[in-house]
């Protein structure tokens, strides 16, 4: 431990003239799960989307400060393909592309210019294994991805992100569209994935944060209120606002 893959320094973020993140300082430990919690509109998703520069898609967004990924400032990088293959993202509702299961997982590889068929095939299989989906789909890799169940689709999306061997996976409320059984599978998978990646997960569900994460960070009104080891965070919150939030007094 003691190894931080991400270091956020004095991060401010603006949507146009509206500031939504205020002076965030936080480190993310390698091969751990960090959960970001807080009421709607607190900036946790905005914060998550800074790490793969998703905000670049929209005009008028502005970052200030530094996000060091392996000591390199993400906010100064200019190769989004490279950055986004190292820092993958999984969204709220499953987003399978309109193509076969195989092509979905191979998509990121093709994007990186990997054309060798055996290599693509091997990495697709490895990614599907990694996402605990291989057993369920190995006989129908050429079937359209849209035919999978919601939970399977979400694992497919995780496989798609895994195929390019990312260091970090960003999860944006990955289970909010899933039933409890599918949710449990994804949570199990996240814990399994710690071996190979670092995970940052935004969740509305405090129990989920408590179940899966090693570290929890509480956001409120665009500020990082408190961050600690999950166990301590939920049992001995240091901040009054944190305590009120986890006791369900607001939010």
């Amino acid at each position: 431990m003691g190894d931080y893959i991400l270091k956020v320094k004095n991060l401010n973020f603006f949507y146009g003239s509206k500031q939504v993140l205020f002076n965030i300082n936080m480190n993310m430990a390698s091969n751990r799960i960090t959960a970001l919690i807080g009421p709607s509109g607190c900036g946790k998703t905005t914060f998550l989307r800074c790490f793969n520069r998703m905000h670049d898609l929209y005009k008028g967004n502005r970052y200030e400060g530094e996000i060091l990924y392996k000591e390199k400032d993400i906010l100064k990088m200019n190769d989004n393909i490279e950055l986004r293959s190292k820092i993958g993202m999984v969204f709220q509702s499953p987003t399978p592309f309109p193509m076969s299961i195989f092509d979905n997982v191979a998509y990121g590889l093709k994007l990186k210019g990997i054309k060798n068929r055996t290599e693509v095939k091997d990495r697709v299989e490895a990614a599907l294994q990694g996402a605990a989906l291989w057993q369920e789909v190995k006989d129908r890799l050429s079937a359209p991805a849209g035919g999978l169940s919601g939970g399977q689709q979400q694992r497919l999306v995780i496989a798609r992100a895994l195929a390019v061997e990312p260091d970090i996976l960003l999860f944006d409320e990955p289970t909010s569209a899933l039933d409890p059984i599918a949710t449990a599978k994804i949570e199990e998978l996240m814990i399994e994935l710690k071996k190979i990646t670092t995970i940052i997960v935004v969740t509305h569900n405090m129990q989920q944060a408590a179940r899966v994460s090693d570290y929890t960070a509480f956001f409120y009104l665009g500020e990082l209120i408190e961050t600690d080891k999950t166990e301590d965070f939920f049992t001995r919150p240091k901040n009054k606002q944190t305590e009120d939030y986890i006791r369900g007094k607001f939010g």
């Binding site: 998703m54 989004n80 393909i81 293959s85 969204f91 709220q92 987003t95 798609r160």
Partner: peptide, 14 residues
């Protein structure tokens, strides 16, 4: 859905 485009962008797709 817009999320589908974002998912593709998140892989670095132009």
């Amino acid at each position: 859905p817009w999320s589908l485009r974002e998912a593709a962008f998140a892989l670095g797709t132009p």
